[in-house]
């Protein structure tokens, strides 16, 4: 099942930062890992990953370097900076607040109509 693009809007940067928290990756590797970890819930149009990566690099949340990949070809790897880690932590808190709010609305819907 592919996710609704509306739900994914704005969370692309957080997902990318979270993936790079564990290890440095290059673009195609990020796409594959994102699909694997989300059980294919998140499947980005692959080209749209690059504006996200480049914007994060411009904001100094990521830094890049070129290195030989396991495939034997040189690829551009991305590394999470300390600033990127702080940004990720901030976005995680925002997401948790958002998720808790949604959960409360979803769970509390019937209770709200129940007689007190």
């Amino acid at each position: 099942m592919k996710s609704n693009r509306g739900l994914l809007a704005g969370s692309g940067a957080m997902l990318v930062l979270a993936l790079l928290e564990k290890e440095d990756m290059y673009g195609y590797q990020i796409i594959v890992e994102m699909g694997r970890r989300s059980s294919d819930v998140f499947q980005l149009q692959e080209g749209t990953l690059y504006p996200i990566l480049h914007a994060l690099e411009k904001d100094r949340c990521l830094e890049s370097y070129r290195q030989m990949a396991p495939s034997g070809r040189e690829r551009k790897y991305y590394h999470l900076t300390r600033r990127g880690k702080e940004t990720l932590d901030g976005k995680r808190k925002e997401w948790e607040s958002f998720r808790d709010g949604v959960d409360q609305v979803l769970e509390g819907g019937s209770n709200a109509l129940a007689p007190s």
């Binding site: 149009q45 692959e46 749209t48 480049h54």
Partner: peptide
């Protein structure tokens, strides 16, 4: 699978 080149091009141009 790469997506729309025109749309991607606009986003990249704004960044670079």
């Amino acid at each position: 699978g790469m997506g729309d080149a025109e749309e991607l091009g606009r986003k990249l141009a704004r960044l670079h």
